[in-house]
Nucleic acid binder design. Structure first.
Length: 210
DNA sequence: TCTACGATCTTT
DNA sequence: AAGATCGTAGAT
């Protein structure tokens, strides 16, 4: 039975508690696959992510220490870090670990679960994988921009992260678009995707069972 | 101030 | 293959 005041969510799924996020970034990244992102009537299932593991990770925005842009990354886990890329695209990250760690997980692709009409409107009529495969596309479909910086995903209202079916098989591979990082960090298999999903961004080459 | 460029996407 | 488009970070 639902208690008074408890929110009814898509398919009865529950918001994840703060402690879900305050763990090792690679563990959280993997477990984010299959979880639901909800914003109003739009519900997406996460199909692809990348882990950015703090200032020692030369691919991470936190590599240069705390700045105005990356400030949300240094906060406690469970909040959003949204930044503008190439002057055009909003990138949604989920902050992980404890306050001061500077780690986050980039949401790279999702599949639609609910609100397809809204998604289609926001994506200019697109509804196949080209609508949600790619980090800029995910934020656009969810209706998220930088005003959602620091937004807590474990609280009711706005954007929420809900439980979802655990992934069956996971693919791993090197992260995309980080040629500025050291060669060893470029090679780290910190990109995770749901095996067999059509809703995975390019390039798909380099993803292997893991 | 000035400059270079980016965890990308769309169109040609 | 190249253009869009602008905030950020580091240099001046």
């Amino acid at each position: 039975m639902l208690r008074y005041g408890q929110q009814v969510t898509e398919a009865g799924r529950r918001r994840l508690p703060r402690r879900f996020y305050e763990r090792d970034t690679l563990v959280v990244a993997r477990e984010l696959l299959g979880k639901r992102l909800r914003h109003g009537e739009v519900v997406l299932g996460i199909t692809e992510v990348e882990a950015y593991c703090g200032p020692d990770d030369s691919a991470s925005h936190s590599r240069m220490g705390r700045t105005q842009r990356n400030a949300p990354m240094w906060g406690p886990g469970g909040r959003a870090y949204v930044y503008l890329c190439y002057g055009l695209h909003q990138m949604l990250n989920i902050v992980t670990e404890r306050e001061g760690r500077g780690a986050a997980v980039l949401i790279r692709a999702c599949e639609p679960v609910a609100g397809l009409e809204t998604i289609r409107a926001r994506r200019r009529g697109l509804s196949g994988p080209e609508a949600l495969a790619g980090p800029g596309r995910v934020a656009a479909a969810l209706g998220i921009d930088r005003s959602f910086n620091d937004h807590p995903l474990y609280r009711a209202g706005g954007v929420e992260l809900l439980d979802g079916p655990p992934p069956q098989q996971v693919l791993v591979g090197p992260r995309v678009g980080i040629d500025y990082a050291t060669p060893s960090d470029c090679r780290r298999p910190w990109r995770f995707a749901l095996a067999g999903s059509r809703w995975v961004s390019r390039p798909r080459a380099g993803l292997r069972a893991g």
